[in-house]
Write a protein that binds this DNA or RNA. Structure first.
Length: 726
DNA sequence: TACATAAAC
DNA sequence: TGCTGTTTATGTA
């Protein structure tokens, strides 16, 4: 970052200054001082509760936690330097008389609840932040209170209480206020611009929520320690940091923050992790992994959640943290399902250090990518009505003869390292060959089946660590053969293959000159993508076009309506889907009709730098011969050597039609970046230190500067900004 | 654009 | 030198 800073010219800086200052005018105009936000922070909460219950501790230095980690300490202990997030054994060295009280979350929860009941009287929609903090919006309460009789309005508070109360026009300021007169005090910033700026003037940036030690250090290197310095360096920051980061810095230095309390959204992930003394045998690691999966599965099921991504977290004995994630097609929630994914990730990690042991001190499992309500419905429907579930059989798994490591290593090579395509090819090859004796033996616990090759992968699952597993028999909705499988993943794979087979028959008709069903790589690729798209889009479609909804602008409803309109017009104008490939083609068309980002969007954002071609990077397959494909949109014949160019043609065709329709109804697909979330942002990753404004940021930057300039044109842009922090 | 990973908070 | 959860940046396909 320092190197980058050296290269910045005076001219660049001046230009940045102008742009940022235009934005400052806008931000000033939208400053909202009409809300009264309170932040309540209970001082040394756990320690306070422990002292309440055991008054003997009141005069002693105490901390709550364990020898390995302290959660908090009382003010006596703090004089010795004993702090939260400090290992207990170090605290003991600092303060040998320290009393360490073990954590009792149940108790703190109860006390917290008592407090929350009181807070709710002032703001029923208050936002608790953990057990010991809360934000309240008391704007309405204050209005009502004006009508209360004198005796009710007066309140005498107990000076013994230890609570920091911050009162300010927004959440960021309120939080910083509650820190001001700690312990046991309150501080208020009156709702005037000058009061806000006075408060910030000499405030160290480290006091700002979201600015931690890393950001503090980075800014210090630029000579920025206080909020006024943060403001002074705004132009430089806009050149060195990402859009989100510098916008956040600007909000901070102007004292802008959220003026309403947002409700917590849907949960996005759930995880569990454990720290222990070194574990270095694969066997212990796998059983630990299973244990974590069991705990997590229990919690997932409590909340009725199923997720598609499983993440394994490992911390080695050198405290280096690694995460490894895998996303599966069917969502997981049970111990078996989560473990099936997690164990593969673990196997890969054990492999990667072999022949040395993997030496870890922490392991964690996380599930994310939860299904939306719509997806849940669809899933449920497809399972109950689509698949005819047969009898359930339970059987004992045989114990692996070899070490777990060897087994899982083998397993990982078989299924994890191969791409989806490779796995399919391998399965096909196996189909035409005889099974090796080894594999046949592995299949013993299953039924004797004719089409046994489909179960190679499931067979490997059988040699699992634990003993029993439930195996279900399903009837495949495509080939109507009974399929036994211990997880839906395996069954889905079978259905995929079956569908592919069907689709080949169907799709062949698209290829006029293609009479054979040869498995050239590009043909198979096309096939796989086709089916993948088909399945993916089916879900999207049923989810009420959730993805376009996530664009979150007011036109979303329009676009859904429009979608229905276009589709009904299309289907009546063209033809009813009559077979699998028709359905697949239609959903592909739907996808093309609603691209995540249209070329129009790009044009909306002016940019001084050159636009690169919007097409994705090329990935050509070697074609054996030219093919003539019929475009499903314009019906013209397209001569092509590869499917990429054909797809491009279809894309262009579809976009043409779409854009025509869109321009009439006007820009309902135009997406504008919301900057609302940027206020919450604090984290800056390592890569940012030497970034010259990354691509992702550029797009935001364009939008932001554009909106500034548009507005600035209509307002008085000659207005100078020399009004802050003099 | 989606995903995986790492890092910050 | 803990645990849980969210967000951002970035590289890659």
């Amino acid at each position: 970052m320092m190197q980058l800073k050296e290269k910045i010219t005076t001219q660049q800086l001046l230009k940045a200054q102008l742009q940022v200052d235009k934005l400052v005018i806008e931000l000033e105009q939208s400053r909202n001082l009409s809300s009264t936000i309170v932040h309540i922070d209970m001082d040394a909460f756990y320690a306070a509760v422990e002292m309440r219950d055991n008054p003997e501790l009141k005069e002693k230095p105490i901390a709550v936690g364990s020898m390995s980690m302290l959660s908090t300490s009382n003010y006596h202990a703090r004089r010795f330097g004993v702090r939260a997030a400090m290992p207990g054994f170090i605290a003991k060295r600092l303060c040998p008389h320290l009393t360490i009280v073990p954590l009792n979350f149940e108790k703190y929860g109860k006390v917290s609840k008592e407090v929350r009941e009181i807070l709710a009287e002032y703001d029923p929609n208050f936002m608790p932040m953990g057990l010991d903090e809360a934000y309240l919006n008391i704007t309405e309460h204050l209005e009502e209170r004006l009508n209360w009789p004198e005796d009710r309005r007066k309140f005498f508070f107990n000076t013994e209480s230890t609570t920091g109360i911050g009162i300010a026009p927004n959440t960021m300021l309120a939080k910083m206020c509650s820190d001001r007169n700690k312990p046991n005090g309150q501080y208020r910033i009156s709702p005037e611009r000058q009061a806000v700026l006075d408060f910030l003037k000499d405030l160290p940036i480290r006091k700002v929520p979201g600015i931690g030690k890393v950001t503090e250090k980075m800014l210090k290197a630029l000579g920025i320690v206080t909020c006024s310095e943060l403001y002074q360096q705004r132009a430089l920051l806009s050149l060195l940091f990402s859009e989100i980061s510098w916008r956040n810095f600007l909000d901070i230095s102007l004292g802008l923050g959220s003026t309403h309390l947002e409700k917590d959204g849907e949960r996005k992930s759930m995880s569990t992790e454990r720290t222990f003394s070194e574990i270095n045998t694969a066997e212990d690691q796998y059983s630990l992994c299973r244990e974590l999966c069991r705990d997590l599965a229990q919690e997932l099921q409590k909340e009725g959640l199923k997720g598609k991504t499983v993440t394994l977290k490992l911390k080695n004995v050198n405290f280096e943290v690694k995460t490894r994630a895998s996303t599966v097609l069917s969502s997981v929630s049970t111990e078996e399902e989560v473990f099936a994914v997690a164990k593969d990730l673990l196997a890969t990690e054990i492999d990667s250090v072999a022949p040395h042991p993997l030496r870890i001190r922490l392991m964690g499992v996380r599930v994310s990518g939860f299904l939306t309500e719509e997806e849940k419905k669809y899933q449920q429907k497809s399972i109950t009505s689509f698949l005819k579930s047969g009898k359930e059989i339970s059987f004992l798994r045989h114990q692996p003869q070899k070490s777990n490591q060897e087994y899982f290593t083998k397993n990982s090579e078989a299924s994890h390292r191969q791409s989806f395509f490779d796995q399919k090819r391998a399965a096909r090859q196996l189909d035409s060959e005889n099974l090796s004796p080894n594999e046949t033996r592995g299949k013993q616990p299953f039924h004797d089946r004719k089409s046994s090759a489909n179960f190679v992968e499931e067979t490997e699952e059988v040699t699992d660590l634990q003993n029993s597993i439930v195996c279900k028999i399903f009837t495949c909705p495509v080939c109507f053969e009974e399929q036994s499988s211990n997880n839906l993943e395996g069954l889905n794979r079978h259905i995929d293959e079956c569908l592919n087979g069907m689709l080949v028959k169907d799709t062949v008709e698209i290829f006029k000159n293609d009479s054979s069903r040869e498995s050239t790589p590009n043909f198979l690729q096309f096939k796989n993508e086709y089916v993948g798209e088909c399945q993916k889009n089916k879900t999207d479609q049923l989810a009420g076009l959730d993805q376009s909804a996530s664009v979150s602008d007011s036109s979303t409803n329009n676009s859904t309506e429009k979608f229905g309109q276009i589709m009904s017009e299309k289907s009546s104008r063209e033809r009813q889907p009559s077979n699998l490939s028709d359905i697949a083609r239609n959903v592909c068309i739907e996808q093309c009709l609603f691209p995540r980002r249209t070329s129009q969007d790009n044009e909306d954002h002016f940019d001084e730098t050159e636009h690169t071609e919007g097409t994705s990077s090329s990935c050509f397959f070697e074609a054996k011969e030219d093919r003539v494909l019929v475009c499903p949109v314009c019906n013209s014949e397209q001569k092509t050597t590869n499917l990429v160019s054909f797809n491009r043609h279809v894309d262009i065709c579809l976009n043409k039609g779409l854009i025509q329709e869109l321009t009439e109804k006007n820009k309902f697909l135009t997406k504008s970046y919301s900057t609302e979330n940027s206020r919450k942002v604090g984290g800056l990753s390592k890569g940012q230190q030497c970034t010259n404004v990354p691509q992702g940021t550029k797009r935001c930057g364009q939008t932001a500067s554009q909106s500034v300039s548009k507005k600035a044109k209509s307002t008085n842009s000659k207005h100078t900004i020399e009004m802050f922090f003099k």
